[in-house]
Amino acid sequence: MPGEISVKQNRLEELAHTLEAEGTYKVLRRIAPIPLNRHLPHDQTRLGIFLDLETTGLDPQHDEIIEFGMVPFAYTLNGTILGTLPTFSRLREPNQPIPPDITTLTGITQEMVAGKTVSPDDVAQFTAQASLIVAHNARFDRLFAENFWDGFSKLPWACSMEDVPWQAEGFEGRSLGYLAMQAGWFFDGHRATDDCLAGVTLLNTRLPKTQAPALSALLREARKPRWQIWAENAPFEYKDKLKARGYRWNDGSNSHPKAWFTEVPLEQKDEELHFLKTAIGLDAAAIPTREITAWDRFSARA
């Protein structure tokens, strides 16, 4: 039977290549786990976990997780994915009913989660060997994840949406499904484990221009110390200029200033301070700055 499946798969691949060779077709392949066929010494490899959460809404202070998806993957220090390992896929019943629009988006109903639980200990055990957590839009997932289990705050995080130069490599958009489609893949989206497998597959893709695995670009970006720069006391009339430059607004409800801010690599820090001084009129010596690493980036602490 395995031999028959292999022959069938090879035949289908031949047909796909024939269609693509015509130049008028593009064949999308269904995303699947990546077989772990190579085993390297432990000091040459790390374990990453791609995480995706389905929640009752967008507010981590009031909304709840209804599905945990985690897909572990082995990778080398230079960013080559060796394969995926067994997944973590759990539903969780929230304290409040699942809103109808969330059920429409995810397909998760109240009946599906009834009586289902996930404990912080379950998550801690599964992530015990992880060296890195990756999410597609880590600014969303990390806040919910850390509220659920504090151990996530002690691990470095990276974002497959922000930390890979998709646009520079010729991709359009940044949504997971659209990026996967442009890379030649399709999957059933908006369920946590499916999204995780899609994310790992995308990181395993070679970027069109550099021909490097997307994971290598993500690791390079995640390892960079970054500087958070606050345009505190910037005149109101410059808000559009700051927003156009990539600054985000902080409403002051956390421990940080009520102001526009951005994050830049160390090599861009002086340039950004110069911009705030010359284009916004701020005193460069009085601009609040702080270093951010992968251990705090995307969290409420940052």
Rank of each mutant, 00 (worst) to 15 (best):
P99W: 01
P99Q: 00
P100M: 05
D101H: 13
D101T: 07
T103A: 01
T104K: 13
Q110P: 05
E111S: 13
M112A: 15
G115C: 14
T117A: 14
V118E: 01
S119K: 09
P120D: 13
V123S: 00
A128L: 11
A128D: 11
Q129I: 11
L132C: 08
I133M: 11
I133H: 01
F140R: 13
F144G: 03
A145I: 06
A145G: 07
N147M: 08
W149C: 14
S153E: 10
L155P: 08
L155M: 15
P156E: 07
C159V: 09
C159F: 12
C159N: 10
E162G: 04
D163L: 06
D163E: 13
V164T: 04
A168V: 04
A168W: 02
R174H: 09
A180T: 12
M181Q: 15
G184H: 05
F186G: 05
A192V: 09
D194T: 11
D195N: 11
L197A: 03
A198S: 15
V200I: 05
V200K: 00
L203K: 01
N204P: 05
N204V: 06
R206F: 14
P208E: 09
P208D: 10
K209R: 15
P213H: 07
A217E: 01
A217Q: 07
R220W: 00
R223F: 01
R226G: 05
